[in-house]
Every structure is written in C-alpha cells, then in structure tokens.
C-alpha cells in the first residue's frame, strides 16, 4: 500500500513509480481509442502517443526494478500490484469520455511533462533517467503540439465543439493541481537531485495553457478545490475497472510466460 516512506532508496523508487504509473495509465487510456477514433489520421496519432507513454513507463519500471534490486520486472510493477499501490495522478486515469476530454487531458499532461523531462535531461544526477528523459522530452513536445492544435480547433470550431471543450475544461482542470503536488517520496528525490521540482515548471505550464486557451477561446475556470489522492493510491472508481482489464491475463493465468 502507498504507505509512509521508509528509506531514501524507497523514496526514489516510489518517486520513479509515480511517473512510470502516469505513463502506463495514460498510455492505456489512449490505447482504448484504437479502432474507435473520429478519423483515420487520429487513429494513428492516438496510438503513437499511447506507444510513447507505454514505452516511457516500461523504461521507468525497468529502472525502478534495477534500483530496488529485488528482481521485480517491468511486468511485476505494471500488472501485479494492488490498486492502492498505483501512484499515478488522478488526471491520467480520467476516462476518455469524448475527443475533447481526451485531447485536453493530453494537453494538460504534456504541458507539464515536456518541461519536466527537459529539466530532467539538464539536471538529473541519474544517468539512466537522463537517457529516458532525452527521448521523452522529444515525444512530449509532439504530444503538446498535437493536443494543443486540437484544443484550439475544437475550442474555436463549431458551437458544439466549443461547448464540449468548455465542458472538458470544467471537468478536468481540477485535476491539474496534482501535477504540481510533491509527495514526501518525490521531495526526497528532488532533494537528491534526481528529479526537477514541479514548482519550477509552473510558470511555463501556466503560460502554455494560457496561450492555447486564448487561441481556443476558452476560459480558465475558477477552481475551488484541486483534486488529489492519486499519489497516495486513492483513485477514482474507474481505476479498478481499468486495472481489471489491464491485469486480466496476469491474474487469470498467474506465473506464466507470454
């Protein structure tokens, strides 16, 4: 369970799992679109973004396993934990709903992760993380551009698309606060120079979102309370269903090689 952090090693492992789980869960959500996208070009784009995120998750889990040194594999992390042990932020697990929600979720996430990885490349003391970050930085730049363009198209498209975008903003903006929240584990990883402090990325995120929203004719909502819980393993009710699907084979046929 997402319990108190015992040691510096545990803290680093936990902090890496936070970003790995973000990649896995958002990658999984994007993969749910496969075969059902609004147009063929977007089938390819959504799959592409999903593949990038799943690839990042894989590299991060492998790194987490190596750091932990207990022989846990990428699949042990991805498939064989309990729901309360997944520490992704709530934003990434939100359901796809419609194309407006999906693209806005992607924009919010990419506008944070692109500068996050960029800073990791520059400053991380961990060579493996710098390597993962260098690739992810480029990938997230593409996600940012792609999702940003779509948010603008839909925000400044038809009456219906504008209404759907506004609805997505109302629904999802309250999950963006968690991107900047720092868990005790993350705090230790930041202090150790492994990962950048999210607070240092806030101005860039604010500016990106403001720029896209201006072009999309969208307004930033007033948020009374930012939602949180994911980093403590307290997920929304959809998460268990997502995991039931994700973990199905590993649970139904334990201990086999695929």
């Amino acid at each position: 369970m997402a319990a108190a952090v015992a040691s510096a090693e545990d803290a680093v492992l936990r902090a890496i799992l936070e970003i790995a789980d973000d990649g896995l869960i958002l990658g999984h959500r994007l993969s749910e679109w496969c075969g059902h996208a609004p147009m063929l070009e977007e089938e390819l784009a959504l799959a592409n973004m999903g593949l990038d995120l799943l690839g990042q998750a894989r590299a991060l889990y492998a790194h987490a396993g190596a750091l932990e040194g207990k022989g846990r594999t990428e699949d042990d992390f991805a498939f064989l934990r309990r729901e309360r042990d997944y520490v992704n932020c709530l934003l990434v697990e939100r359901d796809n709903r419609d194309f407006a929600h999906t693209m806005l979720r992607q924009l919010y996430f990419a506008a944070f992760m692109q500068p996050f990885w960029h800073a990791t490349v520059q400053t991380s003391s961990d060579e493996t993380l710098r390597g993962i970050a260098a690739k992810a930085d480029k990938e997230m730049s593409y996600h940012l551009r792609h999702s940003g363009e779509w948010v603008i198209r839909m925000g400044d498209g038809t009456e219906e698309s504008a209404a759907r975008m506004a609805d997505a903003v109302n629904e999802l903006h309250r999950y963006t606060g968690e991107l900047f929240m720092v868990s005790p584990a993350r705090q230790q990883a930041i202090a150790a120079g492994l990962l950048p402090d999210p607070e240092s990325l806030r101005d860039e995120w604010d500016e990106t979102i403001a720029t896209v929203f201006r072009a999309a004719k969208l307004e930033l909502p007033e948020i009374r309370t930012m939602q949180k819980g994911g980093r403590d393993g307290i997920h929304g009710e959809d998460m268990g269903h997502l995991l039931a699907e994700l973990q199905f084979m590993q649970r139904a046929y334990p201990g086999q090689t695929w």
Binding site: P38, M39, R153, G157, S161, R164
Partner: peptide
C-alpha cells in the same frame, strides 16, 4: 457518428 462533431469542428476551424 460519434466523431462527426470533431471532423466538423476541424473543417469549421
């Protein structure tokens, strides 16, 4: 059908 509004939005934009 569910993607129709997306395609229309892209054209309108």
């Amino acid at each position: 059908d569910e993607g129709a509004w997306v395609r229309e939005a892209a054209l309108a934009h």
